[in-house]
């Protein structure tokens, strides 16, 4: 067994988990909403890309670009017409509603696309790899990780360098005072969920390129996303990447020792981090 190889694969796998987690982290950070349908929405995104690929004969990468604005619109509408109505002091109604959405999405996909497993056609890129002497790095895992870093760089730029991001942060701090600045918190929330759905689309692209999927795989993606967000510390995007990398590493190392340990090792790493740092690695200074 090649340990360097295992570690590199683990880190790169963490990029996929960070992509799963970034949308969840964004939405939680801005409106304290835990979206239990997040994993199913990633799966929905993968089916949407697949549909565009088969209808228009595009490559999955181009199809994902087409899906981006559609998913933004879906997220915007979902927030505006459903989630905004249940957001409030009580955290239970939004939890129940997103749980309901999760079930609706799963069943709709079962109806519309059957339970058969699907895969996005990766073509040559799916098997391409770079030989770096000591390790062989797959191009697709590398692209996944690069996309995760890119997404987080862009999100951080939006958050800390643009007027939109200023409105996001202000609304997250104190929605009432933000409204005294002329900002409409509900519109901010809708924009944020729209952006989260664009990240979901990118996550969906790599989910579908790297492994097969079916309507039932959403909840497991939600768990990985959750663990990455919580390990990183709620609201910190770089923390989310670190969280994804820790789970990815634990899984590949676990699998290298015994293939049956892969999933378990990820969860154990999550629990260990929580034991040592209950608020995650990079908690926000205030909340």
């Amino acid at each position: 067994m090649n340990w360097i190889d295992t570690i590199v694969q683990g880190v790169l796998l963490g990029g996929l988990y960070a992509l799963f987690a970034s949308g969840l982290s964004l939405v939680f950070g801005i409106m304290r909403l835990v979206n239990l349908a997040h994993g199913d929405l990633i799966v929905l995104g993968a089916y949407l890309i697949l549909l565009i690929v088969s209808l228009l004969g595009l490559s999955p990468f181009v199809a994902a670009m087409v899906a981006l604005p559609l998913m933004f619109a879906l997220g915007y509408g979902l927030q505006k017409f459903v989630l905004n109505r249940v957001l409030g002091e009580d955290i239970l109604p939004p939890l129940l509603v997103t749980f309901g959405i999760s079930i609706v999405v799963q069943n709709a996909l079962l109806q519309g696309a059957s339970a058969d497993t699907q895969r996005l056609p990766a073509g040559d890129i799916g098997v391409a790899s770079l030989n770096l002497g000591i390790v062989n790095i797959g191009v697709l895992p590398l692209l996944t990780f690069g996309s995760a870093v890119g997404v987080i760089l862009i999100l951080n730029h939006v958050f800390y360098r643009t007027a939109l991001g200023r409105a996001f942060r202000a609304t997250s701090d104190d929605a009432t005072t933000a409204s005294l600045m002329g900002i409409r918190p509900r519109a901010v929330f809708a924009q944020a969920t729209g952006i989260a759905m664009m990240i979901v689309t990118i996550a969906a692209l790599y989910l579908g390129l790297r492994a097969s999927f079916d309507p039932a795989v959403g909840p497991a993606r939600l768990i990985y996303a959750f663990e990455a967000v919580i390990i990183g510390g709620l609201g910190s995007l770089w923390g989310t990447l670190a969280g994804g990398v820790i789970i990815g590493l634990a899984q590949t190392i676990g699998a290298a020792i015994n293939p049956e340990w892969q999933i378990l090792a990820g969860h154990v790493a999550f629990l260990l981090v929580l034991l040592v740092k209950p608020r995650g690695l990079f908690p926000r200074a205030f909340d």
Binding site: R169, T177, F286
Partner: peptide, 9 residues
């Protein structure tokens, strides 16, 4: 009342 500055700004 209470100023209510945005702490993350």
């Amino acid at each position: 009342e209470g100023r209510r500055l945005f702490p993350s700004l």
